[in-house]
Design a protein around this nucleic acid. Structure first.
Lengths: 189, 189
DNA sequence: TTTATTTCTTGTCTTATGACAAGTTGATTT
DNA sequence: AAATCAACTTGTCATAAGACAAGAAATAAA
Protein backbone atom coordinates (compact mmCIF):
# COMPACT_ATOMS: atom_id res chain seq x y z
CA UNK A 1 0.00 0.00 0.00
CA UNK A 2 2.45 2.58 1.32
CA UNK A 3 5.15 1.84 -1.23
CA UNK A 4 2.83 1.73 -4.22
CA UNK A 5 1.52 5.15 -3.29
CA UNK A 6 4.91 6.73 -2.64
CA UNK A 7 6.41 5.23 -5.79
CA UNK A 8 3.73 6.92 -7.85
CA UNK A 9 4.15 10.25 -6.09
CA UNK A 10 7.94 10.32 -6.26
CA UNK A 11 8.31 8.95 -9.76
CA UNK A 12 11.12 10.82 -11.50
CA UNK A 13 13.75 9.71 -14.07
CA UNK A 14 16.64 10.99 -11.93
CA UNK A 15 15.57 9.22 -8.74
CA UNK A 16 17.15 5.76 -8.62
CA UNK A 17 15.69 2.71 -6.92
CA UNK A 18 17.95 2.83 -3.86
CA UNK A 19 17.28 6.53 -3.44
CA UNK A 20 13.57 5.94 -3.72
CA UNK A 21 13.83 3.35 -0.96
CA UNK A 22 15.55 5.88 1.23
CA UNK A 23 12.86 8.48 0.52
CA UNK A 24 10.07 6.02 1.20
CA UNK A 25 11.73 4.92 4.40
CA UNK A 26 11.61 8.48 5.67
CA UNK A 27 7.82 8.55 5.70
CA UNK A 28 5.75 7.48 8.71
CA UNK A 29 2.14 6.45 8.61
CA UNK A 30 -0.22 8.84 10.36
CA UNK A 31 -4.01 8.95 10.62
CA UNK A 32 -6.51 11.72 11.29
CA UNK A 33 -10.14 11.77 12.35
CA UNK A 34 -12.69 13.91 10.60
CA UNK A 35 -12.30 17.46 11.88
CA UNK A 36 -8.71 17.08 13.11
CA UNK A 37 -6.33 19.93 12.41
CA UNK A 38 -3.15 18.97 10.56
CA UNK A 39 -1.74 22.49 10.80
CA UNK A 40 -3.02 25.47 12.72
CA UNK A 41 -2.71 29.16 11.98
CA UNK A 42 0.31 30.80 13.63
CA UNK A 43 2.15 27.51 14.00
CA UNK A 44 5.22 26.64 11.95
CA UNK A 45 4.80 23.56 9.74
CA UNK A 46 7.30 20.81 10.63
CA UNK A 47 6.42 18.21 8.01
CA UNK A 48 4.33 17.47 4.99
CA UNK A 49 2.09 14.54 4.11
CA UNK A 50 1.36 12.31 1.19
CA UNK A 51 -2.33 11.52 1.40
CA UNK A 52 -3.45 7.94 0.91
CA UNK A 53 -7.16 8.22 1.59
CA UNK A 54 -9.60 10.88 2.71
CA UNK A 55 -10.17 14.54 1.94
CA UNK A 56 -8.44 17.59 3.41
CA UNK A 57 -8.87 21.31 2.99
CA UNK A 58 -6.80 24.37 3.78
CA UNK A 59 -8.44 27.63 4.72
CA UNK A 60 -7.71 31.16 5.89
CA UNK A 61 -9.79 34.00 7.30
CA UNK A 62 -10.37 37.06 5.16
CA UNK A 63 -10.38 40.67 6.46
CA UNK A 64 -13.98 40.17 7.44
CA UNK A 65 -13.45 37.03 9.48
CA UNK A 66 -14.99 34.75 6.86
CA UNK A 67 -13.55 31.28 6.58
CA UNK A 68 -12.25 30.92 2.99
CA UNK A 69 -11.24 27.52 1.63
CA UNK A 70 -7.97 27.98 -0.24
CA UNK A 71 -7.36 24.42 -1.39
CA UNK A 72 -8.52 20.80 -1.27
CA UNK A 73 -6.20 17.79 -1.04
CA UNK A 74 -7.16 14.40 -2.49
CA UNK A 75 -5.40 11.02 -2.36
CA UNK A 76 -1.89 11.14 -3.90
CA UNK A 77 -1.65 14.86 -3.25
CA UNK A 78 1.16 16.42 -1.26
CA UNK A 79 -0.47 18.07 1.75
CA UNK A 80 1.72 21.03 2.62
CA UNK A 81 1.82 24.69 3.53
CA UNK A 82 4.79 25.60 1.36
CA UNK A 83 5.51 29.03 2.77
CA UNK A 84 5.49 28.00 6.40
CA UNK A 85 7.48 24.81 5.85
CA UNK A 86 10.20 26.22 3.60
CA UNK A 87 10.56 29.69 5.04
CA UNK A 88 10.11 28.55 8.65
CA UNK A 89 7.45 31.16 9.35
CA UNK A 90 4.08 30.87 11.14
CA UNK A 91 1.33 29.66 8.85
CA UNK A 92 -1.46 31.98 7.83
CA UNK A 93 -3.51 28.98 6.85
CA UNK A 94 -5.17 26.11 8.65
CA UNK A 95 -5.21 22.59 7.28
CA UNK A 96 -8.02 20.32 8.37
CA UNK A 97 -9.28 16.79 7.69
CA UNK A 98 -12.77 16.77 6.20
CA UNK A 99 -13.04 12.98 6.54
CA UNK A 100 -11.02 10.32 8.33
CA UNK A 101 -7.63 10.18 6.62
CA UNK A 102 -4.61 7.92 6.20
CA UNK A 103 -1.37 9.60 5.16
CA UNK A 104 2.43 9.32 5.21
CA UNK A 105 4.37 12.07 6.89
CA UNK A 106 7.93 13.25 6.41
CA UNK A 107 9.70 15.63 8.79
CA UNK A 108 11.25 18.81 7.43
CA UNK A 109 14.74 17.86 8.62
CA UNK A 110 14.64 14.51 6.89
CA UNK A 111 13.27 16.13 3.76
CA UNK A 112 16.03 18.72 3.85
CA UNK A 113 18.73 16.02 4.08
CA UNK A 114 17.29 14.09 1.17
CA UNK A 115 16.83 17.28 -0.85
CA UNK A 116 20.53 18.05 -0.56
CA UNK A 117 21.91 14.55 -0.89
CA UNK A 118 19.82 13.24 -3.77
CA UNK A 119 20.09 15.41 -6.92
CA UNK A 120 17.06 13.76 -8.48
CA UNK A 121 15.03 14.64 -5.42
CA UNK A 122 15.78 18.34 -5.66
CA UNK A 123 14.85 18.16 -9.35
CA UNK A 124 11.64 16.42 -8.35
CA UNK A 125 11.06 19.19 -5.81
CA UNK A 126 11.53 21.93 -8.33
CA UNK A 127 9.22 20.24 -10.80
CA UNK A 128 6.60 19.69 -8.14
CA UNK A 129 6.81 23.33 -7.10
CA UNK A 130 6.55 24.41 -10.72
CA UNK A 131 3.37 22.41 -11.07
CA UNK A 132 1.99 23.90 -7.87
CA UNK A 133 2.73 27.40 -9.10
CA UNK A 134 1.11 26.58 -12.39
CA UNK A 135 -2.08 25.43 -10.68
CA UNK A 136 -2.17 28.52 -8.57
CA UNK A 137 -1.79 30.78 -11.58
CA UNK A 138 -4.45 28.84 -13.46
CA UNK A 139 -6.76 29.34 -10.55
CA UNK A 140 -6.20 33.11 -10.53
CA UNK A 141 -6.83 33.21 -14.25
CA UNK A 142 -9.98 31.16 -13.86
CA UNK A 143 -11.27 33.50 -11.18
CA UNK A 144 -10.93 36.30 -13.70
CA UNK A 145 -12.04 34.68 -16.89
CA UNK A 146 -14.92 32.38 -16.04
CA UNK A 147 -18.19 32.54 -14.16
CA UNK A 148 -18.79 30.86 -10.81
CA UNK A 149 -21.06 28.40 -12.57
CA UNK A 150 -18.31 27.37 -14.97
CA UNK A 151 -15.76 27.17 -12.19
CA UNK A 152 -18.07 24.76 -10.42
CA UNK A 153 -18.54 22.66 -13.51
CA UNK A 154 -14.79 22.47 -13.99
CA UNK A 155 -14.34 21.37 -10.40
CA UNK A 156 -16.99 18.72 -10.85
CA UNK A 157 -15.15 17.40 -13.87
CA UNK A 158 -11.61 17.64 -12.46
CA UNK A 159 -12.13 16.58 -8.84
CA UNK A 160 -15.57 15.04 -8.33
CA UNK A 161 -14.38 13.43 -5.06
CA UNK A 162 -14.39 16.88 -3.49
CA UNK A 163 -18.02 17.54 -4.28
CA UNK A 164 -18.95 14.12 -2.93
CA UNK A 165 -17.22 14.50 0.43
CA UNK A 166 -17.00 18.17 1.33
CA UNK A 167 -19.74 20.28 2.91
CA UNK A 168 -21.02 22.58 0.19
CA UNK A 169 -20.24 25.76 2.05
CA UNK A 170 -16.53 24.99 1.87
CA UNK A 171 -16.78 24.50 -1.86
CA UNK A 172 -18.68 27.76 -2.17
CA UNK A 173 -15.91 29.78 -0.52
CA UNK A 174 -13.33 27.95 -2.64
CA UNK A 175 -15.25 29.04 -5.73
CA UNK A 176 -15.37 32.59 -4.44
CA UNK A 177 -19.10 32.84 -3.82
CA UNK A 178 -21.53 32.58 -0.92
CA UNK A 179 -23.22 29.34 -0.02
CA UNK A 180 -26.48 31.01 -1.01
CA UNK A 181 -25.36 31.73 -4.56
CA UNK A 182 -23.81 28.30 -4.76
CA UNK A 183 -27.08 26.68 -3.83
CA UNK A 184 -28.81 28.58 -6.66
CA UNK A 185 -26.14 27.58 -9.16
CA UNK A 186 -26.53 23.95 -8.19
CA UNK A 187 -30.28 24.15 -8.67
CA UNK A 188 -29.78 25.33 -12.25
CA UNK A 189 -27.78 22.19 -13.05
CA UNK B 1 25.26 49.12 -11.97
CA UNK B 2 24.95 45.51 -13.05
CA UNK B 3 26.69 44.07 -9.99
CA UNK B 4 24.82 46.20 -7.47
CA UNK B 5 21.54 45.01 -8.94
CA UNK B 6 22.49 41.34 -9.11
CA UNK B 7 23.96 41.40 -5.62
CA UNK B 8 20.64 42.59 -4.25
CA UNK B 9 18.65 40.04 -6.20
CA UNK B 10 20.86 37.05 -5.35
CA UNK B 11 21.48 37.96 -1.73
CA UNK B 12 21.39 34.74 0.33
CA UNK B 13 23.35 33.61 3.42
CA UNK B 14 24.49 30.40 1.72
CA UNK B 15 25.84 32.05 -1.42
CA UNK B 16 29.49 32.96 -0.94
CA UNK B 17 31.32 35.85 -2.59
CA UNK B 18 33.15 33.75 -5.17
CA UNK B 19 29.95 31.93 -6.05
CA UNK B 20 28.10 35.20 -6.40
CA UNK B 21 30.80 36.39 -8.82
CA UNK B 22 30.25 33.28 -10.89
CA UNK B 23 26.50 33.80 -10.92
CA UNK B 24 26.83 37.46 -11.86
CA UNK B 25 29.30 36.58 -14.60
CA UNK B 26 26.71 34.34 -16.19
CA UNK B 27 24.38 37.24 -16.92
CA UNK B 28 24.51 39.26 -20.13
CA UNK B 29 23.11 42.72 -20.59
CA UNK B 30 20.16 42.93 -22.95
CA UNK B 31 17.83 45.77 -23.90
CA UNK B 32 14.32 45.94 -25.25
CA UNK B 33 12.27 48.64 -26.95
CA UNK B 34 8.73 49.42 -25.90
CA UNK B 35 6.45 46.80 -27.40
CA UNK B 36 9.14 44.15 -27.94
CA UNK B 37 8.26 40.56 -27.08
CA UNK B 38 10.56 38.85 -24.60
CA UNK B 39 8.74 35.54 -24.92
CA UNK B 40 6.01 34.52 -27.31
CA UNK B 41 3.20 32.03 -26.88
CA UNK B 42 4.05 28.52 -28.09
CA UNK B 43 7.78 29.12 -27.82
CA UNK B 44 9.93 27.46 -25.17
CA UNK B 45 11.64 29.88 -22.81
CA UNK B 46 15.45 29.58 -22.95
CA UNK B 47 16.45 32.12 -20.32
CA UNK B 48 15.20 34.46 -17.67
CA UNK B 49 15.97 38.10 -16.94
CA UNK B 50 16.73 40.31 -14.00
CA UNK B 51 15.14 43.65 -14.80
CA UNK B 52 17.17 46.79 -14.19
CA UNK B 53 14.83 49.43 -15.55
CA UNK B 54 11.49 49.57 -17.34
CA UNK B 55 8.17 47.80 -17.02
CA UNK B 56 7.13 44.43 -18.44
CA UNK B 57 3.89 42.47 -18.46
CA UNK B 58 2.90 38.90 -19.14
CA UNK B 59 -0.45 38.06 -20.66
CA UNK B 60 -2.51 35.20 -22.00
CA UNK B 61 -5.72 34.91 -24.01
CA UNK B 62 -8.85 33.64 -22.33
CA UNK B 63 -11.38 31.28 -23.94
CA UNK B 64 -13.01 34.31 -25.50
CA UNK B 65 -9.87 35.67 -27.11
CA UNK B 66 -9.52 38.53 -24.61
CA UNK B 67 -6.01 39.60 -23.74
CA UNK B 68 -5.61 39.12 -19.96
CA UNK B 69 -2.62 40.56 -18.12
CA UNK B 70 -1.35 37.89 -15.75
CA UNK B 71 1.57 39.75 -14.18
CA UNK B 72 3.70 42.88 -14.17
CA UNK B 73 7.47 42.95 -13.69
CA UNK B 74 9.29 45.92 -12.13
CA UNK B 75 12.99 46.65 -11.63
CA UNK B 76 14.74 43.99 -9.49
CA UNK B 77 12.11 41.42 -10.44
CA UNK B 78 12.96 38.10 -12.03
CA UNK B 79 11.26 38.08 -15.42
CA UNK B 80 10.42 34.48 -16.16
CA UNK B 81 7.83 32.04 -17.35
CA UNK B 82 8.50 29.34 -14.79
CA UNK B 83 6.52 26.52 -16.35
CA UNK B 84 8.00 26.87 -19.82
CA UNK B 85 11.57 27.35 -18.62
CA UNK B 86 11.69 24.56 -16.04
CA UNK B 87 9.49 22.00 -17.71
CA UNK B 88 10.77 22.74 -21.23
CA UNK B 89 7.26 23.12 -22.62
CA UNK B 90 5.80 25.77 -24.98
CA UNK B 91 4.66 28.86 -23.12
CA UNK B 92 0.99 29.65 -22.84
CA UNK B 93 1.89 33.21 -21.99
CA UNK B 94 3.44 36.14 -23.77
CA UNK B 95 5.90 38.48 -22.11
CA UNK B 96 6.17 41.99 -23.48
CA UNK B 97 8.02 45.22 -22.70
CA UNK B 98 5.66 48.08 -21.86
CA UNK B 99 8.50 50.61 -21.90
CA UNK B 100 12.11 50.56 -23.05
CA UNK B 101 13.96 48.16 -20.75
CA UNK B 102 17.44 47.25 -19.57
CA UNK B 103 17.92 43.78 -18.13
CA UNK B 104 20.44 40.99 -17.49
CA UNK B 105 19.79 37.63 -19.02
CA UNK B 106 20.92 34.17 -18.02
CA UNK B 107 20.57 31.11 -20.25
CA UNK B 108 18.80 28.03 -18.93
CA UNK B 109 21.85 25.80 -19.37
CA UNK B 110 24.06 28.12 -17.37
CA UNK B 111 21.41 28.44 -14.71
CA UNK B 112 21.08 24.69 -14.54
CA UNK B 113 24.84 24.24 -14.01
CA UNK B 114 24.92 26.82 -11.24
CA UNK B 115 21.81 25.36 -9.66
CA UNK B 116 23.48 21.97 -9.34
CA UNK B 117 26.98 23.11 -8.45
CA UNK B 118 26.19 25.82 -5.88
CA UNK B 119 24.08 24.52 -2.95
CA UNK B 120 23.26 28.05 -1.83
CA UNK B 121 21.91 28.81 -5.28
CA UNK B 122 19.45 25.94 -5.25
CA UNK B 123 18.35 27.10 -1.78
CA UNK B 124 17.93 30.59 -3.19
CA UNK B 125 15.92 29.10 -6.04
CA UNK B 126 13.60 27.23 -3.74
CA UNK B 127 13.05 30.30 -1.59
CA UNK B 128 12.40 32.45 -4.61
CA UNK B 129 9.90 29.92 -5.92
CA UNK B 130 8.22 29.78 -2.53
CA UNK B 131 7.79 33.54 -2.61
CA UNK B 132 6.41 33.39 -6.13
CA UNK B 133 3.90 30.74 -5.10
CA UNK B 134 2.95 32.81 -2.10
CA UNK B 135 2.24 35.85 -4.27
CA UNK B 136 0.17 33.79 -6.63
CA UNK B 137 -1.92 32.36 -3.80
CA UNK B 138 -2.37 35.79 -2.28
CA UNK B 139 -3.61 37.02 -5.59
CA UNK B 140 -6.17 34.22 -5.86
CA UNK B 141 -7.34 34.98 -2.34
CA UNK B 142 -7.58 38.67 -3.10
CA UNK B 143 -9.66 37.97 -6.19
CA UNK B 144 -12.09 36.18 -3.91
CA UNK B 145 -12.11 38.32 -0.83
CA UNK B 146 -11.92 41.91 -1.97
CA UNK B 147 -13.67 44.22 -4.41
CA UNK B 148 -12.08 45.42 -7.63
CA UNK B 149 -11.86 48.88 -6.07
CA UNK B 150 -9.85 47.56 -3.14
CA UNK B 151 -7.66 45.46 -5.37
CA UNK B 152 -6.84 48.61 -7.31
CA UNK B 153 -6.06 50.55 -4.16
CA UNK B 154 -3.74 47.76 -3.01
CA UNK B 155 -1.95 47.80 -6.33
CA UNK B 156 -1.58 51.56 -6.11
CA UNK B 157 0.00 51.20 -2.70
CA UNK B 158 2.21 48.17 -3.48
CA UNK B 159 3.38 48.95 -7.00
CA UNK B 160 2.62 52.54 -7.98
CA UNK B 161 5.19 52.32 -10.81
CA UNK B 162 2.80 50.07 -12.67
CA UNK B 163 -0.04 52.55 -12.62
CA UNK B 164 2.31 55.28 -13.79
CA UNK B 165 3.67 53.43 -16.79
CA UNK B 166 1.12 50.89 -17.98
CA UNK B 167 -1.85 51.57 -20.23
CA UNK B 168 -4.92 51.38 -18.02
CA UNK B 169 -6.59 48.64 -20.01
CA UNK B 170 -3.79 46.25 -19.08
CA UNK B 171 -4.24 47.05 -15.43
CA UNK B 172 -8.00 46.52 -15.77
CA UNK B 173 -7.58 42.99 -17.07
CA UNK B 174 -5.00 42.28 -14.36
CA UNK B 175 -7.58 43.37 -11.78
CA UNK B 176 -10.16 41.13 -13.40
CA UNK B 177 -12.50 43.83 -14.70
CA UNK B 178 -13.23 45.62 -17.96
CA UNK B 179 -11.56 48.88 -18.85
CA UNK B 180 -14.99 50.48 -18.61
CA UNK B 181 -15.52 49.47 -15.00
CA UNK B 182 -11.96 50.42 -14.21
CA UNK B 183 -12.50 53.89 -15.59
CA UNK B 184 -15.51 54.30 -13.29
CA UNK B 185 -13.62 53.05 -10.27
CA UNK B 186 -10.86 55.54 -10.95
CA UNK B 187 -13.34 58.37 -11.19
CA UNK B 188 -14.64 57.56 -7.71
CA UNK B 189 -11.16 58.00 -6.23
C1' DT C 1 -35.49 8.56 19.88
C1' DT C 2 -35.57 13.20 20.86
C1' DT C 3 -33.14 17.29 20.87
C1' DA C 4 -29.80 20.42 19.31
C1' DT C 5 -26.82 22.09 15.86
C1' DT C 6 -25.12 22.58 11.50
C1' DT C 7 -25.92 22.70 6.66
C1' DC C 8 -28.60 23.83 2.85
C1' DT C 9 -32.45 26.17 0.33
C1' DT C 10 -35.49 29.91 -0.87
C1' DG C 11 -37.46 34.83 -1.03
C1' DT C 12 -36.81 39.74 -1.56
C1' DC C 13 -34.14 43.49 -2.48
C1' DT C 14 -29.60 45.79 -3.48
C1' DT C 15 -25.30 46.42 -5.82
C1' DA C 16 -21.09 45.75 -8.50
C1' DT C 17 -19.78 44.72 -12.82
C1' DG C 18 -20.56 43.57 -17.75
C1' DA C 19 -22.20 44.40 -22.66
C1' DC C 20 -22.65 47.44 -26.12
C1' DA C 21 -22.39 51.84 -28.27
C1' DA C 22 -20.92 56.66 -28.91
C1' DG C 23 -17.95 60.09 -28.14
C1' DT C 24 -13.17 62.28 -26.51
C1' DT C 25 -8.79 62.60 -25.87
C1' DG C 26 -4.19 61.70 -26.87
C1' DA C 27 -0.41 59.58 -29.39
C1' DT C 28 1.89 58.03 -33.51
C1' DT C 29 2.76 58.08 -38.40
C1' DT C 30 3.18 60.11 -42.68
C1' DA D 1 -0.10 69.62 -39.74
C1' DA D 2 -3.27 66.08 -41.01
C1' DA D 3 -4.71 61.80 -40.67
C1' DT D 4 -5.00 57.65 -38.30
C1' DC D 5 -5.33 54.71 -34.56
C1' DA D 6 -5.30 53.35 -29.86
C1' DA D 7 -6.67 54.59 -25.20
C1' DC D 8 -9.92 56.32 -22.24
C1' DT D 9 -14.59 58.04 -20.65
C1' DT D 10 -19.49 58.13 -20.34
C1' DG D 11 -24.45 56.59 -21.03
C1' DT D 12 -28.02 53.08 -20.87
C1' DC D 13 -29.50 48.79 -19.75
C1' DA D 14 -28.89 43.81 -18.27
C1' DT D 15 -27.27 40.37 -15.01
C1' DA D 16 -24.61 37.72 -11.62
C1' DA D 17 -23.82 37.63 -7.08
C1' DG D 18 -24.33 39.60 -2.26
C1' DA D 19 -26.95 40.79 2.13
C1' DC D 20 -30.21 39.51 5.15
C1' DA D 21 -33.76 36.72 6.96
C1' DA D 22 -36.61 32.60 7.51
C1' DG D 23 -37.37 28.00 7.06
C1' DA D 24 -36.26 22.92 5.74
C1' DA D 25 -33.30 19.16 5.87
C1' DA D 26 -29.66 16.59 7.50
C1' DT D 27 -26.32 15.39 10.94
C1' DA D 28 -24.59 14.91 15.46
C1' DA D 29 -25.42 14.75 20.41
C1' DA D 30 -27.92 13.55 24.44
Amino acid sequence: MKNKLLERVYEHPLIHTDELEKIMGSHQKITFRKGDFILQENHIAQSYLILESGLIRSFAYDFNGNDITTDFFCPEDVVIEVLSLFQRVPSQENIQALTDCIAYEIEFNLFQELYHSIPGFSEWGRLWMTGKLFNSKQRSLEMITTSAKNRYQNLLKEKPQIVLHSPLKYIASYLGITDTSFSRIRKEI
